[in-house]
Amino acid sequence: MSEYIPLQAEIVDIDRVTHDSYLISLQILDRDVSFTYRPGQFVMVSLFGMGECPISIASSPTRNVLQLCIRRAGRITNGIMDSMIGDVLGIRGPLGNGFPVDKMHKRIIIAGGGSGFATLRSLINYIVDRRDEFDEVFVAYGARTRQDLYFMQEYKSWKMDGIEIELTVDVGDESWRGNVGMVPELLDRMEISPPASAAICGPMPMIHAVTKKLLENGFSESDIFVSMERHMKCGIGKCEHCTIGPYRVCKEGPVFPYNMIRDLL
């Protein structure tokens, strides 16, 4: 069976996340396929006739539903968002390595920017469902405006599960009474000190700034896990579109310990 042939998945639910992003719940239709994954992995999503694009998995493997958070970015994501409940998409995956949840410390910092928060939601819900395996968890998340913040309706339940979450926006308005500024500034309120692990996903300047802050606070480079975004075509380490130095983000990544890619960014 060719690695390029996707599984077929029916859209069983669509939730609006923001003005330009939707959370799509899928059910794999192929029989005898057990779709197991780790937080931080991704899939190649097919819209036949339009093509394929990489989308990170936004759901946790601890829950019995596969969810992808899709933002209108290009031709294919626009096409996917015009799909309806009952439509069939192609899915290849799970692909990539994901966060090394078994090797991470019990104290965890999660820093996200913009749509990069989708893959971190997978990790957060994983931690929520296995709460006794982790200690303190601090989430710092920022988006452009209040309207761009992902998964707002879930923050309350995360807090009830003892996950501290701090938010910020780049541009405030009268409806926003929270922080205005950069994600790294939120880390000043964090009381977690090393040894602890960090998971980061977002725009490059944010990744650089958050990493710098964590290193200043004594975090070890190998405890900082960065989820990278690149253009992808094959998703299985052949087409070379997503290379960062000797690594292919689809195969050796998308999650890299910071020491592995520090000099390549």
């Binding site: 006739g49 093509g51 087409c239 070379e240 579109h241």
Partner: peptide, 21 residues
């Protein structure tokens, strides 16, 4: 060199092709 790109031709039936990139 072995880079390639992947694209779909045809709707609702068609072929998924790959081209040298």
């Amino acid at each position: 060199c072995h880079c390639f790109t992947i694209a779909d031709l045809g709707l609702p039936d068609g072929e998924r092709i790959r081209c040298a990139d």
